[in-house]
Amino acid sequence: MKSIPVSTTINGDPYEFLCAPDETLLDVLRNRLSLTGAKEGCGTGDCGACSVTLNGRLVCSCLVLGAEAQGAEISTIEGMADGDELHPLQRHFIDHAALQCGICTPGILVAAKSLLEKNPAPTDEEVRYWLAGNLCRCTGYDKIIAAVQAAAAEMRGA
């Protein structure tokens, strides 16, 4: 199969790459661009560990083709902190012990940030339903919900 040239923007930086027509965005990010923060937990869109935003929309990058990134704006976990300054969600995840093994954490953070951009003051139930596509097997979600709400409160105050 002939490779496809793609020009895209990731975390504000321009990127150009070649990918196979059937290659997923997740594989491009991880294997071609060394952006390994997005994780593959299932490859079928069930676990959310590969969550990124594509033109502002939360997607499973394992269900998006690399070729679809042409001309798009992509945000990944690697772009969430501002240099040394962690995003409030990242800081509260550490402070609330909202991660144990940490494999689902990048996807959950990307998804939670996307939620708070749309809804700065979600109820616990809204957080739980928004994050229902992000599996975490370690925490039982309790501390994740608490961390998202603490970050949301801080961001509303700021």
Binding site: R30, A38, K39
Partner: peptide, 21 residues
Amino acid sequence: TRVRRPDGVDKVTGRAMYGAD
């Protein structure tokens, strides 16, 4: 006490290296 875990920043920024990385 509830201190911050030392691998916390790595794991919230995507810097931590897992098996497939």
